[in-house]
Design a protein around this nucleic acid. Structure first.
Lengths: 163, 163
DNA sequence: CGATTGTGTTTGCAAATACAACTATGCTGC
DNA sequence: GCAGCATAGTTGTATTTGCAAACACAATCG
C-alpha cells in the first residue's frame, strides 16, 4: 500500500518466510475484538433467553421496541444494526406469537409501524432483569468511569459505521 | 412478577400506562452496543470479503491461524469466541479449499491441529490490508489514547465472559 | 391521469449456525 | 487390560440469516 514502486527487486519480495507477517495483531484489532465479544454475548446471554423462547436478535428487537414504543422496520434496522430483511422476518414471527402488532403508517403507507402488545411488553419486562444481571457480570471490575467510557466509545464507533 | 399479592386494588396496578418502564436504556446497555457494532461489522466488512469468497467467520479463523501458526479446534474456539462445532465445520470447508491442513495432535491424539497452508497464508495476507483499512474507517476521529482504551476495555470484557 | 422512478418492506431459496447426539481418544483405578 | 468417566471433535437436522428479486405504496413528470 505504501510500498515504494521504485524499490529494487531484491530479496525483499521473498514469500517463503513462515512467521506471521506484518504488524497485524488480532489482539489489537478492534473489529475482531467487537465480534468476538458479540459472539459470546449471543452464546452466553442467548442461552439464558432460550427458556423464554427468545434468541438474541428477538431480544434486541423487543428491547428496542420497548424503548421507542413503535418504530418502522427501517428504523428498527437502523437502531439495532440488524438488516432489514431479518427484522422483517423476526417481526413476522413475533406478530404470530402475539408479541407485536404491525400496521401500515398513517402518514406514509409505505412504512410499516411495529409496536409491542401488552404481552410483548410483559415479556420484555421479564427479560430486563436478566439482561441487567448479565451486564453486571461482564462489567465486573469496571469502574463507573470505565464503563461510561466504554459505552461512549462504542457509540462513536457505531456512528462511524453508519457512513 | 414481583407484584405484591396483598397490594390494594387501586390504580397502582394499572397496566395501561404506555411509557417505557424502568431505568433500562439500550443506549447504555453494553451487550446491546457490542452486538449492534458486531452486526454491522459482519455486514459491512463482510461484504468487502465476499469477492474473496470469505465471510466474517472464515476471516476471523484465518486471521487467528495466521497469528498463532497452528491451533487446535478448541483453542481456535476459545480465542475467537466462535463455538466449537462451527469452527469444526468451517475448518472442514477451508480444508477442502486447500487453505488449511488438519491432523491429529502428536502429544494428545484427541486434539486436532489446524494450520494454514501457503495458499491460506497468501489469502490472509491479501485480506489484512483491507482489514486495516476498515479499522481505520471505524476508528476515524479516535485519538490513539481512545483507541487504546477501547481495545483494553474490550479485552477485559472478554475476559469476564470466559467465566 | 398513467408511466416512471424512488423508497420501504417482504419473500424464495441458498448458506450459515445452533443444538444434541455421536465418535474418538485418553486417563484412572482396579 | 478393561470398565468407567472425562475430554476433544464431528455430524444430522432444525433454525436462522444473507442475498437478490419481487412487491406495495408514494411522488414526480409529461
Amino acid at each position: 500500500m505504501k510500498q515504494d514502486p521504485d524499490m529494487p527487486a531484491t530479496a525483499t519480495a521473498d514469500s517463503t518466510r513462515s512467521d506471521p507477517i506484518s504488524d497485524f495483531n488480532l489482539n489489537d484489532y478492534v473489529p475482531f475484538l467487537i465480534n468476538r465479544g458479540a459472539t459470546r454475548v449471543a452464546a452466553d446471554f442467548g442461552s439464558g433467553l432460550k427458556p423464554h423462547g427468545v434468541n438474541i436478535t428477538v431480544w434486541r428487537l423487543l428491547a428496542s421496541l420497548n424503548q421507542h414504543m413503535s418504530q418502522r422496520i427501517g428504523e428498527l434496522s437502523d437502531f439495532t444494526g440488524i438488516e432489514m430483511w431479518t427484522v422483517s422476518r423476526v417481526v413476522s414471527r413475533l406478530e404470530q406469537d402475539g408479541m407485536v402488532e404491525r400496521h401500515r403508517g398513517d402518514e406514509d403507507a409505505r412504512g410499516v409501524i411495529v409496536s409491542l402488545t401488552p404481552a410483548g411488553r410483559a415479556l420484555v419486562e421479564t427479560l430486563i432483569p436478566e439482561a441487567q444481571r448479565y451486564e453486571s457480570h461482564i462489567l465486573e471490575g469496571f469502574s463507573d468511569e470505565e464503563a461510561h467510557c466504554l459505552r461512549a466509545l462504542l457509540d462513536r464507533l457505531f456512528e462511524n459505521m453508519r457512513r
